[in-house]
């Protein structure tokens, strides 16, 4: 098909529409593709190594898990590059994962994720890593959740 200028405008406006509404002709969305709220989930001063903090994000029905690993992690933030956060819903069937000694374990079917490797699945039935929650640290140490990189289990759309 020859793409005329008129047709090109149609395509571009279609794409713009799609990115605004999330529906329409655009077919692939790579995360983060949505507008996420910024939410304060902790402060670096209050984080202790391997003591997870649970919070709700991006809304009250989704649980996230924030942890300082005490060792550098893929996509980790903070001076030690060791602070990471993930959706706490197992990507297999949605059970709440538990943080146990440097690992995340699902109590339902025992999928396990490595928080230092972007929550890579290293055992179990889950097919993707836990969605990683993008973090930003302010000068005063406040940690903000910015976006979710991956689909939260049980949703067709994160927001």
């Amino acid at each position: 098909m020859v793409i005329t200028r008129r047709r090109l405008v149609q395509i571009l406006s279609g794409l713009t529409m799609a990115s605004m509404t999330g529906v329409g002709r655009a077919q692939f969305w790579f995360a983060p593709s949505l507008t996420y709220p910024a939410l304060k989930v902790g402060n670096t001063r209050n984080l202790q190594n391997n003591q997870p903090v649970y919070f709700n994000y991006p809304d009250s029905r989704a649980q996230g898990l924030l942890v300082k690993l005490g060792r550098p992690a893929l996509l980790g933030v903070g001076s030690g590059r060791d602070i990471v956060a993930f959706s706490a819903s197992c990507t297999h069937m949605g059970c709440g994962v538990q943080y146990k000694g440097g690992r995340m374990v699902c109590p339902c079917h025992f999928s396990m994720y490595d928080p230092a490797k972007a929550a890579q699945v290293y055992q179990g039935l889950a097919s993707t890593s836990l969605p990683q929650i993008q973090l930003r640290i302010q000068a005063n140490g406040d940690i903000f959740a910015n976006a979710v990189n991956g689909l939260i289990w049980g949703r067709a759309k994160n927001i």
Binding site: W29, A31, P32, S33, L74, A118, N149, G150, A156, K157
Partner: peptide
Amino acid sequence: MPYARRDQLPIP
């Protein structure tokens, strides 16, 4: 490196 992720899927 972590692979590209998605945060919404087309609904059948």
